[in-house]
């Protein structure tokens, strides 16, 4: 089975500095793999382990962060056999539509797939759209919110935990599957896989290599600002009497 696991490199949240005008300074932020994508990578390697002869390709699109060799080794230490990276200045702050278009072109150039796995959303934008757009662009079935994944003959069986029921679907391949963070606990890379990661193949492409030209974005980001800080209200209700509980609820209701 040919498996592609998509991931995004995002700034380390702890390193992000909020400027006085509430804009974000990412200059000193280290690079890390978006946490939700680690579930997709783990799901991909588990799927591959269940079907002998499978291959897992990690795929990402973005800007300069993808040149980070440590981050490349990090993703490869988590199971994928090879890494494909589309690095282009036009993808530096790409929104879901451009990201999905670049992923679709890259998957085609890689030479096909049976399953593409995505996380439930990225660690920075968390738009939860890329996987769905990707499936649509590739004209294949796409299912999100998947919390269990089992390989079948030409299909995968997925479970989606909905509000009142668990939906079980048999999805014909090829398909795009977006997994939730409940699907697994990503394994911690072992010493062996870390040291072997640097020997795995990495292929870098630009948008020109893929024959795509990002068009005018249908959505333009006006600003990204940190939430305004609000002082604590310091409303303290002593004791758990009915009247205090009622006052607490009323206080919450007013605030919300």
């Amino acid at each position: 089975m040919n498996i592609v696991t998509c991931f995004k490199l995002v700034p380390e949240e702890q390193d992000i500095v909020v400027n006085s005008d509430r804009t974000l300074n990412l200059e000193k932020a280290n690079t890390k793999i978006s946490l939700y994508d680690l579930n997709a990578v783990e799901a991909g390697t588990e799927l591959a382990a269940a079907i002998p002869g499978s291959k897992v390709n990690a795929l990402s699109v973005g800007g300069k962060r993808l040149e980070n060799t440590k981050a490349r080794k990090d993703i490869l230490s988590r199971g994928p056999d090879a890494l494909y990276a589309v690095i282009d200045p036009s993808l530096e702050s790409a929104l879901p539509r451009e990201t999905a278009a670049a992923l679709a072109a890259a998957v085609t150039k890689i030479g096909g797939f049976d399953v593409i796995l995505c996380g439930e959303g990225s660690g920075d934008l968390y738009a939860q759209q890329v996987g769905l757009l990707l499936g649509s662009l590739l004209s294949v079935p796409v299912v999100n919110d998947v919390s269990k994944l089992t390989a079948g003959e030409g299909t995968v069986t997925v479970e989606r935990t909905l509000e009142t029921e668990v939906e079980v679907l048999s999805v014909p391949l090829p398909a795009v599957i977006c997994v939730t963070s409940d699907i697994n606990t990503p394994k911690i890379p072992s010493m062996k896989t870390i040291l072997a990661a640097g020997k795995k193949p990495v292929t870098s492409w630009s948008c020109a290599d893929l024959g795509i030209t990002p068009g005018a974005a249908p959505v333009v980001v006006q600003s990204v600002l940190a939430p305004e800080q609000a002082d604590r209200k310091k409303v303290i209700l002593e004791g758990d009497s009915d009247s205090n509980v009622a006052a607490f609820v009323e206080s919450l209701r007013k605030t919300l």
């Binding site: 990090d74 911690i188 010493m191 990661a197 640097g198």
Partner: peptide, 14 residues
């Protein structure tokens, strides 16, 4: 080295 940094990150995570 990058490998050393990743090894230490793995230890921390474990």
């Amino acid at each position: 080295t990058e490998e050393q940094e990743l090894l230490l990150a793995s230890v921390r995570e474990l």
